Every structure is written in C-alpha cells, then in structure tokens.
Amino acid sequence: MKKYFAALATTAVISTAPQAFAVDNTLEVKGIITPVACTPVFSNNGTIELGKISSKELNPDTHKKIRENNIQLVVTCSAPQSFSLNPIDNRRETSTGDWFGLGLTTNLEKLGYFYPAIVSVNDGATPLDPIDSTDEENWSKATSAKPGRYLSVAAIGDTSPIKAENVTFDFRVDTYIAPANGLTLDQDVTIDGSATFDLAYY
C-alpha cells in the first residue's frame, strides 16, 4: 500500500530541464506451461436417455422427479495435477431451479431442471471429498455439481484442493419436470438438457 504524506517546505530548485515523473508503465504476463494433461470423459458418451414420459405422470402444481440416472465423470491425468471443473449450463435460461435447464415447450415455457447429486469421488482406490467454490479460492464441501460453482477434490475431511491423477465422480442425476399446469402439453415435447464441464488447471 502506498502511503502519502503532506509536507510544507520553503526550498525549491528552478531548472530548465524537463520534469521527470515516476510512472508504472510495466505490463507483466505470467503463467506456467505444464506437461501434465487431464481429460474429462463422461460414461455413456455423456447421454442420459429418459425415454417417453406421459404427461399423466406429472404433478399439476409441483415439480415432479421423474427419473434417477447414474453416470460417471472420469478425469484422467498423465500425472498428479490439481484441477477444477466449471459446470456450464447450456440451457441456462430454461431452468426452473438452481441447476441445469431442460429446454422449453413450443410456447417457450421452462420444462424444469436436472440435478447431478455427487454420490462419491475416488482417485483410483482412494476416496476423496468433493469441494466447490465460486472463486477457486474459498472452497467448501460439495453435494452436487451446480452452474456457477467450480468443482474440485480434497482429502477426506478437508476442503483444500489436492493433486489427483485418476478421479472418478459418481453422479446420480435427478430430473425434475415443472408443474404441468404451467406447461403446454398438447403435443410431444422434447426434453433437451445439456451441460458442459470445462476443466482448468491451477
């Protein structure tokens, strides 16, 4: 922090030389190129097929959980590496909750959301705790993948990210459909949820 002082002086110098001012004119670009490479891959090609759902299964006034599906996300690194996953909702404007949107009806009504609950995390045979953060500095225990919250791993009982090499996230994906009274269901409606888990090193 710079400290500024006020001073009164009666001495001066009269000079014909131009004045020189100290200016912070340095731009620094810093980073690290790492030889480690990590690849995130979902099981089943990242697809959850819900099949046909009858509108009669839905609740008229409340969200209805229609399916629970299990899926894995495996992050494989060429050497132990600390990383974070940024879950991006590709249907962000269609969600009726805090999680990932499912698309719209033909009348542009929001269909609902899907919720990837974290069942377990392991690095090989070693159990880990899932953690998340909004700024990649302050971490807390995570129970789900959520848009806007970075996801990483920590030792059991801790919340500090660690280096890992072969991490498996086991998710249970719960799908919720919005109340039927607010949806136009006079023809087939396509459920079109989509999320991208963007990986970054740090």
Rank of each mutant, 00 (worst) to 15 (best):
F169I: 01
K163E: 14
T34D: 14
S15Q: 06
P147D: 13
F197W: 14
T143L: 08
T105W: 01
E28F: 05
A164L: 09
T94R: 08
V29D: 02
G112C: 09
R92G: 11
G112L: 12
V75L: 04
V41F: 04
V23F: 09
L128Q: 12
F197C: 00
T190G: 05
V75F: 03
T39K: 09
P127H: 08
N138T: 09
Q19T: 04
G51N: 02
G193I: 02
A154R: 05
V167D: 08
A195L: 15
L85A: 03
G157L: 08
K146E: 15
T190P: 00
A79M: 05
R67F: 08
I131S: 03
I48Y: 12
E57W: 10
L183I: 07
L108K: 13
D89G: 07
T16I: 05
L151A: 12
I48V: 07
G124Y: 10
S95C: 04
I53E: 09
A164H: 12
T94W: 12
A178N: 09
T159D: 08
V41E: 12
P35Y: 08
V189F: 02
E68F: 01
N69S: 15
P87C: 10
T105N: 10
K141S: 06
N69D: 13
D192R: 08
F171C: 04
E49T: 05
T76K: 15
D135Q: 13
Q187K: 13
V153A: 10
S152K: 02
P87K: 07
A195K: 02
F21L: 05
I71M: 09
P18Y: 10
A180N: 01
T47E: 15
A155W: 01
M1E: 03
A155D: 15
T96P: 00
A154D: 05
I88S: 03
A200Y: 14
G148A: 13
S54G: 10
E93S: 14
E49D: 11
A9K: 12
S140T: 06
A178T: 02
A37Y: 09
G124M: 14
N59P: 02
A145F: 13
C38R: 07
T168N: 09
I32Y: 06
V167H: 12
V41Q: 15
P147C: 07
Y150Q: 03
P40L: 10
E109V: 00
G51F: 06
T76W: 02
S120M: 06
T175Y: 05
Q187Y: 04
A117W: 12
V36H: 11
L73P: 00
G148P: 10
